[in-house]
Design a binder for these strands. Structure first.
Length: 306
DNA sequence: GCAAGCCTGACC
DNA sequence: GGTCAGGCTTGC
């Protein structure tokens, strides 16, 4: 089994105790970055010779249009902003009507997976689109049991516009940008971190982890964070995401290796999903509350409200 | 019935 | 600029 990408459940890896409550690790920025790197190795520079749409509504705008917009394209670039992947498509056909560069935007939602497999491999349930590469022998498949994901093929300017609607990437945002983003915001910091238009890439899991690292209560008004808290939160976001990018890379390698090492998926979550457990820092009890309609996990003792 | 990410619409 | 609720889907 050759998977170029992030897949929540590999074959042969042991379930990770810290994730046992929620079997699917949601694709947030680190998982999407892992997918991007995998695609860079396996798909960049290759030509999508045919597209097979198994489920029309995944393509927005219709299967026929989707197919004709992509077939014959070479994957000339792979970008990521936040949790959105952009496959840049170029055409070098000799036809009378040359086609302008286009872009395939992919959002994995909750359970989306992009996988490169031999075309002969069994097609798993919930596989919605298959992209045949260079006329075979393998293909890129999009699979998404819950179908919260999005595939959209559009012209380049339109794709840029869509990406511009996202806030700065959470791995790239500078401290001044981050502070500007916080300024004047009266809502809960947790909600703001999950607002993709403000900062792109954080989901529920890493938002909780970053707030835990920075010792900030999730309901703190974003614009009222002290300078020291702004600095430590900015730093926590970067370090939590960087660590996760490293670990997902590891999990990916172990996934293709059937003998994957135990703990391959061990993203050590210190707050998320640990309600009722002792805080690893102070021994307090991790609490779960709802902030902005989302479950939030924090330590009431070391993440004090201010 | 709940959880996830993201959208939309209602409302202040 | 905010919040809140509802809807989508599936597996636990």
């Amino acid at each position: 089994m050759l998977s170029i990408s992030y897949t929540p459940h590999g074959r042969g890896e042991r379930p990770n105790p810290t994730l046992s409550a929620s079997p699917f690790a949601m694709p947030e920025l680190p998982e999407v970055e892992t997918v991007r790197r995998g695609l860079e190795r396996r798909v960049l520079g290759r030509t999508i010779s045919a597209v097979q749409v198994e489920r029309e509504e995944m393509t927005r705008g219709g299967a026929a249009r989707f197919r004709s917009a992509i077939e014959g394209a070479r994957v000339s670039g792979l970008r990521r902003k936040g949790k959105t992947l952009a496959l840049e498509l170029s055409f070098h056909d000799s036809s009378a009507t040359p086609r302008a560069p286009a872009c395939l935007l992919v959002r994995l939602g909750m359970t989306g997976q992009l996988v490169v497999l031999p075309s002969s491999a069994a097609v798993l349930p919930h596989t919605h689109v298959r992209f045949l590469l260079d006329g075979g022998p393998d293909e890129l498949r999009y699979r998404d049991p819950r179908r919260f994901g999005l595939l959209r093929c559009c012209a380049m300017p339109e794709a840029d516009k869509a990406l511009a609607r996202l806030g700065p990437d959470a791995l790239e945002i500078s401290l001044p940008e981050f502070e500007k983003m916080l300024a004047g915001r009266r809502g809960a910091i947790k909600s703001l971190l999950m607002n993709q238009g403000a900062i792109a890439g954080l989901g529920n899991i890493y938002a909780d982890e970053a707030l835990f690292e920075a010792k900030i209560h999730p309901e703190t008004a974003a614009g009222r964070l002290a300078k020291s808290s702004r600095v430590s939160l900015h730093h926590a976001i970067q370090s939590v995401l960087q660590k996760a990018v490293r670990l997902q890379g590891t999990s990916f390698r172990d996934y293709i290796d059937i003998e994957g090492k135990p703990g391959a998926f061990a993203m050590e979550l210190r707050a998320y999903g640990r309600a009722g457990e002792p805080c690893v820092r102070c021994g307090g009890r991790i609490r779960r509350i709802i902030v902005g309609g989302r479950s939030s996990h924090y330590c009431p003792k070391c993440q004090r409200r201010r």
